[in-house]
Design a binder for these strands. Structure first.
Length: 468
DNA sequence: TGAAATGTTGGGGCG
DNA sequence: ACGCCCCAACATTTC
């Protein structure tokens, strides 16, 4: 057996347990070199997710140290960085967990080919998803375009059991040099309010696991009913951790299954949401253009407005529509947005303001600390009507009606709209925004950008025209 | 994982 | 007792 070191290239799999690559690597008995690379693709992500990624990397470096490994940080194009590390350490192979968004796929396939051409063992592992996207197929061998049949199909498939975290691993005798995480300034784009957003982050594998078990020990019971109410703490909050791989989705799935088998109400609804996450990757694998082009080709003729002043008001949470503004501010203050609020905010931008869904997609990618390339693209296209499983008329939400149904006591709106009802938490929105926005807590709450009935009628007219 | 318009039904008040 | 109107509740259709 070779005792050449193995390079473990970590990306969005920053955990020790439920980690097929790491488990396999430890089993080889070879010295391991964990590395994280700030390559151009990673450097290009939005301000909030990049800042949050830095927190995840720091926590993961500490976790690795606990089993005897060091996380080496390098900057630059990934292939060049990996080649350098191979040259410096005599490593015999490079392993990683697969990513599935088009930019990562293009990068990784090029790297795999280049390394193999140089005689290096380049190997990729599953682990980010419950099922590899190509493993789930319809009876005809195609892919699923609608969630419910997809869900029925994956219910028939076993999810691999999670590997336990290694207690100890063998590192290198001499470690290569590492960048300092601080020097990367991953939070530079968040200077406007990182201190505010930081209060709402739950970082690292141990914290993520604690969050999972707290959720399954109680709140999951009411999940099916409460998950739709943004003012009520009814969700697991795990999206933030899943997106950086701070916890493995297979571990979450099996824990959820156990809860279901113990008869906990809501567990099935929770599992279903995990399947939605996998489904978005199923779609991005089979139709990578979903991230940038109308998924339904006929929609290329639709007269979307490009970026515009109304969209800027939307980004700032100043549309004059309280539920929408509360949603946008929740994202700005906490780094996240409740799922129902996402649908309402997205519907408002794409229907009432007739703005191109890509304007919204980009802003979410900039501001969400749980940003996920597949879920974000699927969600926006689904709401806009250009995406899978979508009937456009079905997605014109009335934000006022939705507020009555899902925020009847106004708790959610009051939390984020200081102009309407000042409160300590609401104030933090104004602490979080850049000064250049010139928004202050004593600002007058804006008048609505558009009358809801008029906006709806305008959207319906545009949809009718687009169909012909 | 909509909303609004339109249609249907059935009970109660009333002449 | 009966028909009529009103209207709420629910169902269906349409966008």
């Amino acid at each position: 057996m070779s005792d050449e070191p193995l390079i473990l290239w970590f990306r969005r799999d920053l955990r020790l347990a439920d980690q097929p690559m790491l488990a396999a690597a430890v089993a080889t008995g070879r010295p391991l070199l964990p590395v994280f690379i700030l390559d151009p693709e990673t450097d290009a992500i939005g301000a909030a997710p990049k800042w949050r990624l830095g927190l995840a990397v720091a926590a993961f470096a500490e976790a690795l140290a606990g089993i005897g490994l060091r996380l080496v940080l390098r900057r630059g194009p990934a292939l060049a960085a990996l080649r350098e590390l191979v040259a410096e350490t005599g490593a015999g192979g490079v392993w990683w967990s697969r990513a599935y968004d088009p930019a990562s796929v293009a990068r990784d396939s090029g790297i795999k080919a280049a390394l193999q051409a140089e005689g290096r063992a380049a190997r990729s592992f599953p682990g980010h998803l419950m099922h590899e996207p190509c493993d789930v197929a319809t009876g005809q061998g195609g892919f699923y375009r609608v969630f419910t049949p997809y869900w029925n199909a994956v219910l028939q498939r076993a999810v691999p059991a999670p590997e336990p975290a290694p207690k100890v691993a063998q590192g290198l005798k001499v470690w290569p040099t590492s960048d300092s995480l601080d020097d990367w300034h991953l939070g530079a784009g968040m200077n406007r309010g990182a201190a505010v957003v930081a209060r709402y982050q739950v970082v690292g594998e141990a914290a993520a696991r604690a969050r999972l078990h707290r959720f399954l020990s109680g709140p999951v019971q009411g999940y099916a009913e409460r998950r739709d109410f943004p003012g009520v703490p009814g969700c697991s909050g795990l999206s933030e951790n899943l997106t950086y791989g701070e916890i493995g989705v297979r571990e979450v799935w099996h824990a959820g299954l156990r809860a279901r088998d113990e008869g906990k109400a809501g567990a099935e609804a929770f599992l279903r949401q995990l399947a939605w996450r996998d489904f978005s990757y199923h779609l991005i694998h089979h139709t990578p253009e979903i991230v940038s082009r109308n998924w339904k080709p006929g929609w290329d003729r639709f007269p979307w407005r490009g970026d515009n002043g109304d969209a800027e008001s939307w980004r700032r949470g100043m549309t004059g529509e309280p539920f929408v503004d509360a949603a946008m501010r929740e994202m700005y203050v906490t780094g996240r947005m409740h799922n129902r609020a996402r649908m309402i905010a997205a519907s408002y931008l794409t229907k009432h303001l007739l703005t191109d869904w890509r304007v919204g997609l980009d802003w979410f990618a900039e501001c969400l600390t749980d940003w996920d390339p597949a879920a974000n693209a699927m969600g926006w296209q689904w709401v806009a009507g250009s995406g899978p499983d979508a009937a456009p008329f079905f997605r014109i939400f009335n934000p006022a009606g939705q507020a009555v149904r899902f925020d009847a006591d106004t708790a959610y709106r009051r939390r984020f709209l200081a102009e309407l009802a000042p409160g300590p938490e609401a104030m933090s929105f104004f602490d979080a925004v850049p000064r250049s926005w010139r928004l202050y807590a004593d600002a007058a709450y804006p008048l609505p950008l558009v009358d809801l009935a008029e906006g709806r009628a305008r959207a319906l007219a545009a949809l009718a025209e687009g169909k012909t």
